[in-house]
Structure formats: structure tokens, C-alpha cells
């Protein structure tokens, strides 16, 4: 089969979608370049899954234009070339892991070997196990394995880290980065901002049916203008310091010994704050400098949108 090669493997232009009177998407546009990881983040019900389903070809858009691999989503040719790992899809519980993957492999004209995929996702040790006995993490890996069976050009992942423990989430992140190194394009939705920040080339933040921010995580953070934060832990109650900070800095008393101070200018403010701490007669037990994260940017952008 001759494959169409286009720079943007996914092109979305002003798509709209409503469920009854509820408008979920009101003009969403973006492109996904070949070989990049684009994460779509947004509040619950913001339309992340709807965008994915439209691009997977199982849901119709009410308006706008879109293409996947240069073709209309949902066509057999496109389905041969994409992989989809769903958020809530179950498998045949009475089949064994490798039986289920063999079944999936049979649907495609071109596919990887079951053994190779099992090793890639780390399931080869339990390939003979029944699916009904798998843990949540193993099921998510199986979801990913089925999506990888046809060695897809694009992977659509709908909240792949949902419900996974931290260790499995780390494994998943490493796996997705490994897939990107192989040239796979990944379109990912997630609620885990840490994951999105660590693995994504670009992040799209959805809110009120539109994309409210789109770009590399570092650029989104830099463009947000959010200040760095200094987190002090004192031996004593920091009441005297809080009184000195009134009207000078935005400060928050987290608990009876911890104070977080926002600072747009770290170098100058750090010196001044340490001076105020000495004036207040407090003893510093620890001091952390926290840069804004994608989660801070997300919370800032989506405040009041839910």
C-alpha cells in the first residue's frame, strides 16, 4: 500500500460539535506534525474525547474540516494506519493476553509480531494470563499493546494514565517517549499535567469549546507570566513575617509553619525576604524555589471554565 506522506498528519480546522443543545466544541483548530506528541488537556466535559472520536472517525462533527493522514477519518485506509487506546474499552475477559493480541493483529494487513509488542509494553511475562485477572495497570498496557499491533503512524490515546499508580505512569511515559523516537505521532488526552509537561512536544488547553492555549509546555509556562514561588518552612509560627509582608508580597500561610511567597523577581526578592525573616526573628528550617508548572498554567487558564 502506498502511503500518503504529508507534514501534518492531523489537520483540524474550526470543528464544532453539539450534543443536543449543549455545545461542546465551538471552533477548534490545530495541526499535529509527524512524529510529535500533542497532548490535549482541559476540564471534564471540555470536549477532549469528542475531538479524539471525531478524528478516529467514530463521531461526526457538526461543522469544520479535518483530516487524518491526508484522508477522511474513519476510512478503512486510515484505520489500517492508526492505533487507538481507549479510556473505557474492555477486552474479551475470557481470552488470554496473547490470544487477544493475535485477534487484533488479524484485523490488519500489516502488523508487528505479538511477541515484539508484548516485550515493548512489558507484558511478555503474563502473556498466558487471562484478561479477567489483569490489574488496572496491566489492562492499560494491554490497551496500548492493541493500539500498537499495526505499528501505527498515529496513536490516539484517550487518558492512558487514568487510574495508574505512579510507577506504572512513569513506565507509560517512558514507553510513549520510546514510541516517539521510533517516529510514531501521538495524540494524547490527559488530566495529568505532569505527564503532559514531561512527554509532550506541544500541549493544547481546551476551555469553553475552544483551544485557549497551544504550544510547547515551556513556552506556555513562560508566556503565562506566572511568578516563581518561594516556600519557607519555619521553626516558629511565622506571624511576625506575615505582618511585615502585608502590602509588599502575595503570601499564603499554608499551615502554621509554612509560608509560600510569590515572586516575579527571584534574585532581588530572595535577598529582601531573608532580611525580613531575620527582622521577624524566625528560624528557617527549609527553603524551596518553585518555578511555575504546566499545572499552574492550566489552573490559571481554566479558572472559572468548568
Amino acid at each position: 500500500m502506498e502511503r500518503k506522506t504529508v507534514p501534518e498528519v492531523v489537520r483540524v480546522d474550526n470543528i464544532a460539535k453539539a450534543y443536543g443543545k449543549r455545545r461542546v466544541l465551538t471552533g477548534v483548530s490545530f495541526q499535529v506534525e509527524r512524529g510529535e506528541i500533542l497532548s490535549i488537556v482541559g476540564p471534564n466535559g471540555s470536549g477532549k474525547t469528542t475531538i479524539m472520536e471525531i478524528l478516529e472517525g467514530i463521531r461526526r462533527a457538526d461543522g469544520g474540516k479535518f483530516s487524518v493522514l491526508g484522508s477522511s477519518p474513519g476510512s478503512r485506509e486510515v484505520r489500517e494506519r492508526i492505533g487507538v487506546a481507549l479510556q473505557d474499552a474492555d477486552a474479551f475477559s475470557n481470552l488470554r493476553v496473547e490470544e487477544f493480541l493475535r485477534l487484533h493483529a488479524s484485523f490488519y494487513r500489516r502488523c508487528l509480531s505479538v511477541q515484539e509488542v508484548l516485550e515493548t509494553v512489558g507484558l511478555s511475562m503474563i502473556r498466558k494470563n487471562y484478561i479477567r485477572g489483569l490489574s488496572g495497570g496491566e489492562r492499560q498496557k494491554l490497551n496500548l499493546a492493541t493500539a500498537m499491533m499495526n505499528d501505527p503512524e498515529i496513536l490516539f490515546l484517550d487518558e492512558p494514565a487514568e487510574g495508574l499508580d505512579p510507577r506504572v505512569r512513569i513506565e507509560l511515559r517512558e514507553l510513549l517517549l520510546a514510541l516517539r523516537r521510533r517516529g510514531t505521532t501521538i495524540l494524547n488526552t490527559t488530566h495529568y499535567m505532569e505527564d503532559a509537561q514531561l512527554i509532550s512536544d506541544r500541549v493544547a488547553v481546551l476551555g469553553r469549546g475552544k483551544i485557549v492555549a497551544l504550544g510547547p509546555p515551556a513556552e506556555l509556562i513562560a508566556a503565562s507570566g506566572l511568578p516563581k514561588r518561594l516556600e519557607f518552612v519555619f521553626r516558629e509560627h511565622p506571624g511576625p513575617l506575615l505582618r511585615l509582608l502585608e502590602g509588599i508580597h502575595t503570601s499564603v500561610l499554608e499551615d502554621h509553619r509554612r509560608v509560600i511567597v510569590s515572586t516575579p523577581s527571584l534574585q532581588e526578592d530572595l535577598v529582601r525576604l531573608l532580611s525580613l525573616v531575620r527582622t521577624a526573628g524566625l528560624t528557617v528550617e527549609s527553603l524551596d524555589v518553585r518555578s511555575p508548572t504546566l499545572e499552574d498554567v492550566y489552573l490559571n487558564l481554566t479558572e472559572g471554565l468548568q
Binding site: 467514530i58 484505520r79 481507549l86 474499552a89 474492555d90 474479551f92 490488519y108
Partner: peptide, 12 residues
């Protein structure tokens, strides 16, 4: 349980 949805993404 989403199994048919899973199948609908394949060339089946």
C-alpha cells in the same frame, strides 16, 4: 464495556 467501540477503530 467499550469492546465494540474498540473494534470500530480497526479495519474490521
Amino acid at each position: 464495556r467499550g469492546f465494540l467501540k474498540r473494534l470500530s477503530h480497526t479495519p474490521l
